[in-house]
Design a protein around this nucleic acid. Structure first.
Length: 585
DNA sequence: CTGGGGACGGGGCCC
DNA sequence: TGGGCCCCGTCCCCA
C-alpha cells in the first residue's frame, strides 16, 4: 500500500490526547540495575537493521530514493508518523498497514539526514541543505531538529513557526479541514508552546549540531537507565506533569523519573511538547521543580559529563535550572524533606538523604577503603570500617575489657552483663537479649511444635454458636482479655479513649476506632479459629507486657507496649493466615 | 538453634 | 540545603 503525505488526515486521531502510560502497581524490593550502554546499543542495532533492511516494515520514498526503516522508530521520532500510525490512540490498530510512504515533499538528502538523526541521535547536514532539513523536520514533526535548524539559520521559532504553519497548511491542508477544531486547538496553544520550547532549547541546538565527542548516541546515566528498567508505580501527578512541561520532555510519564535521560534515541522529544493539551494552561500552584531539583543532586544521576552533547532536552543542572527559571522565574526550592525515591517510591526523610538512598539502587559505592579496597555507599560507614584497620574501638565495656566498634554493639554487649532478656517469644516464652534474635527465632521453626500442637476442636460447635465448657472458658478468657487490654494500657491510647464499653455487647465494642476494631477483629478471628493457645498466649503476653511496663524495663521507644502490641497483632494475624492455609489443606 | 559480631540502610540532630 | 555524625533496626555470617 502506498501512501503519500496528504492522506494524513485519515489517520490523525482527534482530538489529540496525552498518552497515559499504564503503571504497574508498586512493588517492594525493587532493584535498579543500570545498563548505561543499553540505549546506545539499542539504537546502534536498530541502525544496523535499517542499513541491512532487517525487520524494516516501512519504506520511505522521496523522488525515487527509497529508505527502508522501522515504523516504531519513525513513530517515536516523528509526530507525523505517530499520528499516521495512530499510536496516540493507544496503538491498538496503529500502523494502518502502510508499508511505503511517499515523501516527495521532503528532499532526499534531507530525508536521509533525518533518518540518520532518528537512528543515531546525530544530525549531519551540509549548511546548504539546512533549509531542506528544516522543511522536512517541520513537515514530519521532528521539532527538535526543526528548532536546531531554525537556530542555525537565525530564524526565530515565532517567525518560522508561521512558515511552518503555512507549510503544514499547504501540505496537510486536509488535516486542518478535516479537523478544524483540533487545528484551532493546536493553533491556539502554539504560541505558548513555542515560547516554552524556545526557552528550553537554546542549549540543545548546539548539542544537536555538535554531537558528543565520544559517541554519536547519548549516554543516559546509569541511574536513569535503571529507572527506565523499573516499573513505575504511580501515574504522573499534575505536579509531575507540569514538571514535564518545564523540562520539555514528551508525554511518557515514566520519563519524569529519568533525570539523566537527556537524549533519547529518537531524538524527537520537543515536538511532543507541542501536543500537550495543557501547555497553555499549566496547573496553578507552586513551581514543580522539586523533583527535578532533587534528582539534580542525586549522586550517580545526571552524569553531565556523559550527557553533555546529547541531542535533546536539558540535562545538566545548570541547564535544568535554566529551564526552571525560564518557566517561572524567582522560584524557591521547596523543602526537600521528605523526598520520594523515584525508583522504589519510598519516602526518604531528612535533607540530603535522597542521594544517599539512591546509591542503594545504583549500587554506587564511592567511598573506598584505602587499606583494603572495600567500598561503601556512605562515608560514615567507611569511617566506621576504618576502625578495623586502625584498631580503634571507641566503645569500651565498663564491666569487662571488651571494646566495640559500634555503640550498638556495646549496647548489645551490656545486655549480656545485665542478663536482661527483654525480648521474649510469645509462643514458647524463650527470652532473647536481642530483638533480631527473637525475630529470627520466630521466623524460624523454633516454635513450630508448639503452634501445631494447639488443640483442634469440632468446627460445628463454633458454627452453631454452641460452646462447651472449655469453649466457654475460652470465650470468657477472651472477654477478660479484652477487658484487660482495655485496662492494662496494652492497647494504644486511641483505643482506650474510645469509651467504657458499658451496656450491651462485648466489652470492647467502642465504635469508631480503627485500632480497636482491628483488635476486635483479631479477637474474633481468634475465636473463630479456636486458637485456645493463642488466646492464652495473648493474655499472658499482655499480662507480661503490662507488668513489664509497670516495672519500667522497657521505657517507651520501639519496645513500648503499643508498638509491641502492634507487632504482636501483626504476627498473630500472619500466623492466623498460616493457620487458615493449613486448615484449607 | 543460639550467641555474637559486623554490615547496611534509614532517621534524627546539628553545623 | 547538604553533609557529617550518631543511633537504631534489620539482616547476614560465623562459631
Amino acid at each position: 500500500m502506498r501512501h503519500t503525505l496528504p492522506p494524513l488526515q485519515l489517520t490523525v486521531p482527534m482530538p489529540i490526547k496525552m498518552v497515559k502510560v499504564a503503571m504497574s502497581p508498586g512493588e517492594d524490593g525493587l532493584i535498579g540495575i543500570p545498563f548505561p550502554e543499553h540505549s546506545n546499543e539499542l539504537l546502534s542495532h536498530l541502525n544496523d537493521q535499517r542499513r541491512t533492511g532487517l525487520l524494516c516494515d516501512l519504506t520511505l520514498t522521496s523522488r525515487g530514493a527509497r529508505y527502508p526503516t522501522h515504523r516504531s522508530v519513525m513513530a517515536a521520532v516523528s509526530l507525523y508518523f505517530r499520528r499516521l500510525f495512530g499510536t496516540e490512540e493507544g496503538g491498538g490498530e496503529g500502523g494502518g498497514g502502510f508499508s511505503v510512504c511517499q515523501l516527495d515533499c521532503v528532499a532526499p538528502d534531507a530525508l536521509d539526514a533525518l533518518l540518520e538523526f532518528a537512528y543515531t541521535a546525530t544530525l549531519t547536514i551540509p549548511s546548504s541543505g539546512m533549509r531542506d532539513v528544516l522543511r522536512g523536520a517541520q513537515l514530519l514533526g521532528i521539532q527538535c531538529v526543526a528548532d536546531a535548524c531554525r537556530d542555525i539559520l537565525g530564524e526565530t521559532a515565532e517567525t518560522e513557526g508561521e512558515t511552518a504553519e503555512e507549510q503544514r497548511a499547504q501540505h496537510l491542508a486536509p488535516v486542518r479541514r478535516a479537523g478544524g477544531e483540533i487545528g484551532l486547538e493546536k493553533g491556539s496553544r502554539r504560541k505558548t508552546d513555542k515560547k516554552k520550547v524556545k526557552k528550553v532549547e537554546s542549549h540543545h541546538v548546539n548539542s544537536v549540531l555538535n554531537p558528543p565527542h565520544a559517541s554519536p548516541a547519548s549516554h543516559p546515566s546509569p541511574a536513569s537507565d535503571s529507572l527506565r528498567s523499573l516499573p513505575s508505580t504511580q501515574p504522573p501527578s499534575p505536579e509531575q506533569e507540569e514538571l514535564f512541561l518545564k523540562s520539555g520532555q514528551n508525554g511518557d510519564p515514566r520519563l519524569i523519573r529519568e533525570p539523566g535521560r537527556g537524549a533519547t534515541p529518537n531524538g524527537g522529544l520537543h515536538h511532543w511538547l507541542h501536543e500537550r493539551p495543557h501547555v497553555a494552561h499549566p496547573p496553578p500552584g507552586p513551581p514543580s521543580i522539586d523533583k527535578l531539583s532533587e534528582e539534580d543532586e542525586m549522586e550517580g544521576f545526571g552524569d553531565d559529563g556523559m550527557l553533555m552533547g546529547s541531542t535533546s532536552i536539558p540535562t545538566s543542572v545548570a541547564e535544568r535550572g535554566a529551564v526552571a527559571s525560564a518557566g517561572g522565574g524567582g522560584r524557591k526550592r521547596k523543602s526537600q524533606t521528605p523526598q520520594q525515591c523515584p525508583v522504589c517510591q519510598k519516602i526518604i526523610h531528612g535533607a540530603g538523604k535522597l542521594p544517599r538512598h539512591m546509591r542503594t539502587h545504583t549500587g554506587e559505592k564511592p567511598f573506598q577503603c584505602s587499606a583494603c579496597g572495600v567500598r561503601f555507599t556512605r562515608n560514615d560507614k567507611l569511617k566506621i570500617h576504618m576502625r578495623k584497620h586502625t584498631g580503634e574501638r571507641p566503645y569500651p565495656c565498663p564491666h569487662c575489657p571488651a571494646r566495640f566498634l559500634h555503640s550498638y554493639d556495646l549496647k548489645n554487649h551490656l545486655s549480656l552483663h545485665s542478663g536482661a532478656r527483654p525480648f521474649e517469644c510469645p509462643l514458647c516464652h524463650k527470652a532473647f537479649a536481642r530483638e533480631d534474635h527473637l525475630q529470627r527465632h520466630r521466623k524460624g521453626h523454633s516454635c513450630l511444635e508448639l503452634r501445631t500442637r494447639r488443640p483442634r476442636h469440632d468446627p460445628e460447635l463454633v458454627e452453631d454458636g454452641r460452646v462447651d465448657g472449655g469453649r466457654r472458658e475460652q470465650s470468657n478468657l477472651l472477654e477478660a482479655l479484652s477487658l484487660q487490654a482495655h485496662s492494662s494500657g496494652f492497647l494504644p491510647p486511641s483505643v482506650l479513649e474510645g469509651g467504657g464499653g458499658t451496656g450491651a455487647g462485648p466489652p470492647l465494642m467502642f465504635p469508631g476506632d480503627v485500632e480497636r476494631e482491628r483488635s476486635l477483629a483479631l479477637l474474633a478471628q481468634l475465636r473463630s479459629h479456636r486458637l485456645a493457645d493463642y488466646s492464652e498466649l495473648l493474655l499472658r503476653e499482655m499480662e507480661m507486657r503490662g507488668g513489664r511496663k509497670m516495672e519500667g524495663e522497657d521505657p517507651g521507644g520501639t519496645h513500648s507496649p503499643a508498638v509491641q502490641h502492634d507487632r504482636w497483632v501483626d504476627d498473630v494475624e500472619e500466623e492466623i493466615g498460616e493457620d487458615e492455609a493449613e486448615e484449607e489443606e
